[in-house]
């Protein structure tokens, strides 16, 4: 982290703010559409939509701050936001872990050059926003407890959730992957087209 200069840190802050706006927008949109149908389940689609929208921001960040730490810090800041804003606090962990992993892939393994690894690192970073999905698990537990109290048998409860747990996870993961790949593609396109790096910019 010590190789980051003040200017890099400021850049990271700015791109994190933009990423954050993308996230808020995506959450709002998906929440608006799916929240009315199934409360809470909108968070299943949020990671994918965030990844779809935030591609250019991520690609530009990796372009402008090609040093280890940038993506980790961005993940950390997003996690911090979850921590203080009334989301489930452990949502913090996936963002930090995914940010770190993506960072390692991007800057240490890929040396910030390889396009394929850049896609892959973005894909991993996209999974950071799956944190808010976790409360569903708690909601499910509360719901199960309430069903038990209502006098339902265990078999009945298992029946209710048999159709939900597996497929929803697959849907969440595949939506995220598709969103991330599309986001990475559009992001790279926009960055290459409009932000071709001018040499000797320190």
């Amino acid at each position: 982290m010590n190789s980051l200069k003040a200017k890099d840190l400021i850049n990271i802050g700015i791109y994190s703010a933009l990423y954050f706006v993308c996230m808020a927008l995506a959450t709002f949109l998906t929440g608006f559409v799916t929240g009315l149908i199934l409360p809470g389940f909108s968070s299943l689609f949020v990671p994918g939509i965030v990844a779809l929208v935030a591609g250019p921001v991520y690609m530009l960040l990796t372009d402008r701050v090609p040093r280890f730490g940038a993506i980790t810090i961005m993940g950390l800041l997003m996690g911090l936001f979850f921590l203080v804003s009334g989301h489930f606090a452990l949502s913090f962990i996936p963002y930090v872990a995914c940010g770190f992993l993506a960072d390692v892939l991007q800057t240490i393994v890929g040396k910030a050059r390889s396009n394929g690894l850049r896609y892959l690192s973005y894909l991993i970073f996209a999974f950071g926003s799956t944190g808010p999905v976790m409360p569903l698990w708690f909601m499910k537990n509360a719901y199960v407890a309430s069903l038990t109290r209502k006098g339902k048998s265990q078999a009945y409860i298992d029946g209710v959730f048999a159709h939900i747990s597996g497929p929803t996870l697959i849907v969440c993961v595949s939506v995220t992957i598709v969103g991330a790949l599309l986001g990475a593609w559009t992001g790279t396109m926009i960055v290459n087209r409009h932000f071709a790096r001018t040499p000797a910019e320190a």
């Binding site: 909601m139 537990n141 719901y143 309430s146």
Partner: peptide
Amino acid sequence: VLFFFVGLGKLLPVVVVGAYISGTT
């Protein structure tokens, strides 16, 4: 209805705290 109240109600304390913190800090 049951899922709505029980599920979201479970998250209510966290949301109350979050609203307080983001509103006053």
